[in-house]
Design a protein around this nucleic acid. Structure first.
Lengths: 267, 267
DNA sequence: TATTGTAAGTTTGTCGACAATCAGATGATC
DNA sequence: GATCATCTGATTGTCGACAAACTTACAATA
């Protein structure tokens, strides 16, 4: 994931000599780190759980050396803590962490939207199609009442946002922030849980991007992340007036089931 | 650095039983990582340099195991790259990195200022005193024409900003961003180099904070970071109008030598 | 002369082992 | 009965070693 692989723009003719994309050789430590991240995301390593190195290394089929290196990597990313002489533990997020993570996302994600809007129209359509597809996954998951699938689609939506709108650095940072967001959920609730408004909020994101309205996209993102923080910390939904509700109310459509709000045409 | 140590609010009586601050037991990996960061900051490990593990481990007096773990940590922080089977190399920053890093700082640092201004007046005075002291170090360094000392004071100024204005997470992130800023300098210039306007810009930062003018502080920070990017990338200083110059011109003082601009009274 | 094949040397990637350390439990003492 | 000391079992932190992989240099061939 850290090797430089992007930057070789569109390549048409396959028989052209040279200009082959470099093979992606990934080290064992990378693989272990990725596996651990997955385990954190899907909840098989719940926050606070204390694991022993030997056991974990055996499960992964590697020796303790590479595992310890991967642990250090995840520690630097803020996903793991290494209590002295107690193996490793998935980090438990505090309310302050919840606020910080969402605050950071609220600074970054609007910029991702702006950069996507600054792309050529053809690419922009591709991006919107992909984002729309993720929203559809969210809608399907909501209809099936599958919170896990909904959360996964949520993650992929924002990952796509970062992949298309960010530099390599920004995308990597967003990737970490998104995993940490998931950790916030695990840390605050006992079970996996997402809020039902999630889907309509994301429909509005795509609509704002389709309308090339960066300001509205920014406002929507900020309102969404604000709302997420309140939901996670179980603070009163709206002190005086809920920005998210107000913004969504601007959508001129007549009332529809939340999970079936229309995406912009063509998506 | 990752141990939870904050959160034990003001503690007055020293003879009180219990309530001792936990001893900071730092692991070998932590020490190695810190040593490597220092080496990156002071330039003894220049960007692009390729080091062998065995040699480095011998210099540090540890075996290769802990060193490799520390390398992974620095890699996750974005300071090192690990080319396959080629030891380790200090990352060389690209122009895109320069822009990203400064863009991120421009999102974070204004918030640090706001949080400092939100503190009680007594604490705020302490913070201003510390920031003022760093600016004085910068002025002294400028008078001695000591670019290295100037750069170090610059780093410490912004570290103090993060320490007083940030959560633990924000402070850690700013710490990494600042080291990366230093790496930008090393990557772009052959020798260590800082711009002379640095000092007057920082005098203005402190003045804005002393005046509790968050908006002005934000504008100054953004102008400073913009200017830094242009200096680093050697882009034309001012396309049409330089925000930094305009903002600084608002200072009502009569012209003074740049290295002697008055700090707000009492600092 | 340019290019390919071969070989040697160096360095990494990985593993196994050892010793120091710590947590938990049991027993002794005031 | 509560607190402290001791013991033990288990786990980590660290090191040394081995084999595989890669780079570099050199030689052979077209």
């Amino acid at each position: 994931m850290s090797e430089r692989n992007s930057g070789t723009g569109g390549l048409a003719s396959a028989r052209q000599v040279g200009r082959l994309a470099p093979v992606r050789r990934t080290s064992t430590v990378d693989l272990i780190a990725e596996r651990l991240r997955e385990a954190v995301v899907d909840g098989s390593l719940p926050p606070g759980a204390v694991l022993g190195e030997a056991e974990l290394a055996f499960q992964l089929g590697v020796s303790r050396g590479p595992l310890r290196e991967a642990m250090q990597r995840l520690t630097a990313e803020g996903l793991l803590v290494i209590p002295r002489r107690r193996g490793l533990a998935v980090r438990t997020m505090t309310p302050e962490d919840v606020r910080d993570i969402h605050w950071l996302r609220a600074r970054i994600e609007p910029e991702l939207g702006r950069r996507i809007l600054a792309r050529p129209a053809a690419e922009r359509r591709t991006v919107l199609a992909e984002l729309g597809a993720e929203v559809k996954r969210m809608q399907k998951a909501l209809r099936r009442d599958d919170a896990r699938a909904l959360g996964d689609a949520y993650l992929d939506f924002h990952r796509a946002l970062a992949a298309w709108g960010g530099s390599e650095r920004l995308a990597r940072m967003m990737g970490t922030l998104l995993i940490e967001t998931r950790l916030c959920t695990f840390s605050m609730y006992e079970h996996f849980e997402v809020h039902r408004d999630l889907v309509s909020e994301h429909v509005a994101f795509v609509a704002a991007l389709a309308a090339e309205d960066a300001a509205r996209f920014t406002a929507l993102i900020e309102a969404h992340l604000d709302a997420e923080v309140r939901r996670l910390l179980a603070e009163p939904e709206a002190a005086k007036e809920d920005d998210a509700d107000r913004l969504l109310a601007e959508t001129p459509d007549e009332p529809q089931p939340l999970d079936r709000l229309d995406l912009p045409e063509g998506l």
